[in-house]
Design a protein around this nucleic acid. Structure first.
Length: 617
DNA sequence: TCCGAAAACTTTTTT
DNA sequence: AGTTTTCGGA
């Protein structure tokens, strides 16, 4: 295997990385925190650094790079980008996992080495306890007046083993009882992810061999969205890697820390610097937004942190009209009418398509959907509440599910004449399911023959039958039969339990039904299923990491926004996250009916070029 | 069944 | 903080 020398290595697939990114990339003999503000090219930076480590031999086989993200799609995107940026035999040594997948893999591989009585049964299942479950447990324990939320907090934060000598503490006793209950019966052992985290931490702390093996495997650790790391996750990280030669690359932005209420560390970056002696490098480009938007972003960024460095805008402005404003209406009705009229006009004039503008809200997206959706419909627009449940799964989660990624390409092949991407996806999946290597000629030929036969049959059916609920069911069934449901389910570990699989399958069927309502063609059904041409609606939290041509934040008023605790600065950070989703334009709406204007915010934004106007135009 | 008080809830990820 | 749900007593 030939390596590229450190001096000769250059980024691939992009023109260049900014100097700060190159600096952070070449820091490989110490840990580094990379402050990456909105649109700084975080994923690209991490992918390039992975390529650098693998291609130069700084991370030689069999050593690997471990990347930890929070969300599945973030982990997946990063892995995909690394595969685009370096040879596949090297990209295979890049492990991109979510925090939970990482802890679960440790427990699953080395669970037997966890000291009693915390050794988990190999047959345990994952639990997703809700409020009710915690409360019920407390009631059974004879403590009906205690808060289940507090119990969940204590379980998440109590390191194992639970101190037996100190069971006079009521909460410790409850935590111990919960562990006992969860581990006692090997045939009915249910563990929640925070518990797997504690088990993994205990394992690494107690077992030197496992710890050493982990450290030998991973000399380089990437931490994505580090500002969202919880205290328990950080503890696992220090047990695993503090005092080793592992070099950390933590990427994040404190100005986008809006998960404090969910346990994100307040002082994460400081702790990391103290524990791992990290050097801080700030990325100084914004590839998402144009200069006029970035100038306004800087004003907000400065209000959050007055040490914020100046960021250079790298995107071009393509809009001549207003790019930022606060729109004021008298009533909530007028607000909804105004927004939908504006979007309809934009679409009619050909400025943007409906799916390029996103509606963001602070909370209760379902309520806003109920209010706004009918008005959108009257103007010929479709609002897509991405968090809305179809059955027991949210639309946006359903679209990222393995089932959807396997079935949808098959249905597309039936509905559309040319679809080489879908063909490739379907072929690759068959290779995986059948255990056939890409080089295997005979295997490849049989896949080709089967896939051609399937597509021919499906096309026949879809041409002969207009979209209807019954036909959707039939098409879905044909696709599942082709996949071989049994084989497919055993290939996806998350689908082992009936309940988990049914949740996804039912959701898919429901969204397909919905999409077929009054649809003129199968192509239209598929577009509706995927949200093509629909205006997305979501909370600010859900919008994290996404970007939109135009962003409209609905409800910038004291009632829906600033009513939360004024003690924390997370409101301003939420506002910053919303604003920085916009590539070209960011608008905020409010109405007098819902509460008074937020003076200090308007006073801060007005000089930056965000006027308060009475509705658009 | 009704009324007023108290409590819950808002923002979310995860195989 | 403000709105909605639940609960207990009558």
């Amino acid at each position: 295997m030939s390596f590229v020398s450190v001096e000769d290595w250059a980024p691939k697939g992009v023109a260049a990385l900014e100097p700060a990114a190159m600096t952070a990339l070449r820091l490989t003999n110490q840990s580094v925190t990379v402050v990456a503000s909105a649109g700084a090219g975080k994923t690209e930076f991490l992918a390039q650094k992975a390529a650098y480590l693998l291609e130069t031999g700084l991370c030689p086989a069999p050593k690997r790079v471990l990347a930890i993200s929070f969300k599945r799609d973030a982990a997946k995107n990063l892995a995909e980008r690394v595969h685009q940026r370096c040879p596949s035999d090297m990209a295979r040594r890049f492990d991109s996992l979510t925090f939970d997948a990482f802890t679960k893999s440790l427990v699953d591989r080395f669970g037997a080495a966890i000291p009693a009585p915390y050794t988990p049964a190999p047959t345990y299942s994952i639990a997703f306890p809700g409020r009710r479950d915690w409360d019920d447990f407390l009631r059974v324990q004879g403590a009906p007046n205690q808060s289940g939320q507090t119990l969940s907090y204590h379980i998440t934060n109590a390191a194992l083993p639970i101190d037996q000598s100190d069971l006079s503490d009521g909460w410790k006793r409850m935590v111990k009882a919960y562990w006992d209950k969860s581990l006692r019966d090997p045939n009915d052992s249910l563990l929640a992810f925070p518990m797997l985290n504690r088990l993994a931490e205990f394992l690494l702390r107690e077992n030197e061999q496992v710890r050493r093996a982990l450290r030998l495997t991973y000399p380089f650790i990437f931490l994505d969205e580090f500002q969202d790391t919880t205290y328990a996750q950080y503890q696992l990280l220090t047990t695993a890697f503090l005092g080793s030669n592992a070099m950390l690359t933590a990427v994040g932005d404190d100005k986008q820390r809006i998960m404090g209420w969910a346990g994100a560390m307040k002082d994460g970056f400081e702790r990391l610097e103290a524990d791992f002696q990290t050097t801080e490098v700030a990325l100084l480009s914004n590839w998402r937004s144009h200069a006029d938007l970035v100038a306004i972003q800087q004003v907000i960024a400065h209000a959050i942190d007055d040490q914020t460095p100046v960021v250079q805008a790298r995107a071009d402005r393509t809009i001549d009209d207003d790019i930022a404003a606060i729109w004021t209406y008298d009533t909530a009705d007028a607000e909804c009418e105004g927004i939908s009229d504006w979007v309809a006009n934009q679409v009619r004039s050909g400025t943007i398509s409906p799916d390029e503008v996103a509606i963001l809200v602070r909370m209760r997206a379902d309520d806003v959907e109920a209010e706004l959706s009918p008005i959108f419909a009257r103007k010929g627009l479709i609002l897509r509440n991405v968090a809305r449940n179809v059955g027991e799964i949210a639309i946006q989660d359903l679209l990222a599910e393995e089932l959807t990624e396997a079935v949808l390409p098959l249905i597309k092949l039936g509905a559309r004449q040319r679809s080489p991407d879908d063909w490739l996806i379907a072929t690759k999946l068959q290779e995986t399911l059948r255990g056939i290597e890409p080089e295997d000629q005979d295997g490849g030929a049989s896949i080709l023959a089967d896939l051609e036969a399937f597509v021919l049959d499906l096309r026949c059916f879809m041409r002969a039958n207009a979209p209807s609920e019954a036909c959707c069911d039939e098409v879905f069934k044909k696709a599942l039969d082709f996949l071989n449901e049994k084989v497919f389910r055993s290939a996806v570990s998350a689908y082992n339990r009936d309940r988990d699989y049914t949740r996804v399958k039912t959701g898919f069927g429901l969204l397909l039904h919905e999409s077929s309502e009054n649809a003129q063609s199968w192509d239209e059904v598929l577009n509706r299923f995927e949200g093509v041409g629909q205006t997305p609606l979501m909370t600010v939290h859900k919008s994290k990491g996404l970007e939109f041509h135009t962003m409209i934040f609905l409800g910038l008023d004291s009632q829906s926004w600033w009513s939360l605790k004024p003690t924390s600065d997370e409101e301003l950070k939420s506002f910053f996250v919303a604003f920085t989703r916009a590539m070209q334009r960011a608008f905020f709406t409010r109405c007098a009916e819902r509460g008074p204007t937020i003076n200090w915010l308007e006073e801060m934004l007005a000089p930056a070029g965000v006027p308060s106007v009475v509705g658009p135009e």
